[in-house]
Design a protein around this nucleic acid. Structure first.
Lengths: 198, 198
DNA sequence: TGAATCATGTAACTGGTTACATGATTGT
DNA sequence: ACAATCATGTAACCAGTTACATGATTCA
């Protein structure tokens, strides 16, 4: 459902389906991804529903291209969505599910490696987001000089950065507590005998 | 796909589909939700695939019940999943998409109300998570005394708490910058004339 | 010449939701 | 008597993914 509105939002600047995929990968990927086939299908459906229009761009040089753009009805539909209270889709964190059950793993040091891997992923993502922030900041100085569009994009970018920083901190915190559990303090060590390594 | 493994993980304690739904709502809801119909269908499929078994509990008092539990093959499959590197499902944040396009809204103060609504939601969720943390902490004192299962559940709980705290901070930060934009500093105000209210 | 990219699309499938049907039990 | 809850299931549908087909253009 939300893909409809995202496309209506993006098509305030008219483009092709192919180009939209690139925009997805460059900007909205962090909170909403989409495959090309899905984009094409949705565009066609939205046109059938009268929420946007397309025209065939003559192939002067290059392959056939179809350029979509919104109309009055599409913009109205978008505004109606924006007037709704905050919506929550299914937020599915597979890696948390893995961690949740990781006690069922045979491998004693599995959790530690898992968290280390996670940390790398989060670090990379955070870098990518900070990169975008830096690029955006350079030309336009401060928040007060942003256009309304830039400002709103900046806010959602900040959401990504802030939560990614939190996840990184959580990784570090968790790795510490795993290490603490693996090397218990010797003074009040329990006689546990279970074939300890070494 | 991941629902398969979550069910295999939960069914280390045998239960019914109906009961599993309750467990979902009470614990895994924050990183993975599921509807009853989906649970029943998946349970049946997993049994067909030989990853778990069910027996009919005789209805001594109450309606017919079917109790599922894992077998060796199911546990093996679960461990194989836990040995995989961190997986990432589609994390879809509808409210960020809304915010991203909110400049297209006609309403000048829309963003502020939107963020205020968001803050309430996040505050409530954080409270719920902290509640779970408090309940779990009471009987078992510190991390070092947790069982391995408790410890892993605690780690994923912490992930939720830490990111929710970050989202709350982001809300506050964002509300501040929206307010700053709405009331620009008078000393270097630009003559912008566009029919300002008042 | 051949690989990569631009560009649009179709078909099959999957994971999941919504709505509905059924019937027993418990509590008011 | 009636509503709520326990408990299991079916059917229709929807959003989205994967895989595949096609053909032109650009670049090594």
């Amino acid at each position: 459902m939300s893909l409809d509105y995202i496309l209506l939002g993006l098509l305030q600047r008219p483009t092709t389906g192919y180009e939209l995929k690139r925009v997805f990968d460059g900007t909205t990927r962090y909170f909403w991804g989409a495959e090309l086939s899905q984009i094409y299908n949705t565009l066609r459906r939205l046109e059938r529903e009268g929420l946007l229009v397309s025209r065939n761009a003559p192939p002067a040089l290059g392959p056939e291209r179809r350029i979509y753009s919104t109309n009055a009805q599409g913009r109205k539909r978008l505004r109606a969505w924006l007037a709704q209270p905050p919506q929550f889709g299914q937020e599915r964190f597979t890696y948390l599910a893995q961690l949740f059950f990781m006690n069922a793993s045979n491998d004693r040091s599995r959790t530690l490696r898992f968290l280390a891997d996670l940390r790398v992923v989060f670090r990379d993502r955070l870098c990518a987001l900070r990169q975008i922030e830096a690029e955006q900041r350079t030309p336009r100085a401060t928040k007060s000089k942003m256009t309304n569009e830039e400002f709103h994009r900046y806010l959602s970018l900040r959401a990504g950065i802030v939560t990614m920083e939190a996840r990184l901190r959580w990784c570090t915190e968790s790795i510490t507590s795993v290490r603490e559990r693996m090397t218990p303090q010797p003074q009040r060590r329990r006689a546990h005998r279970k074939g300890a390594k070494k």
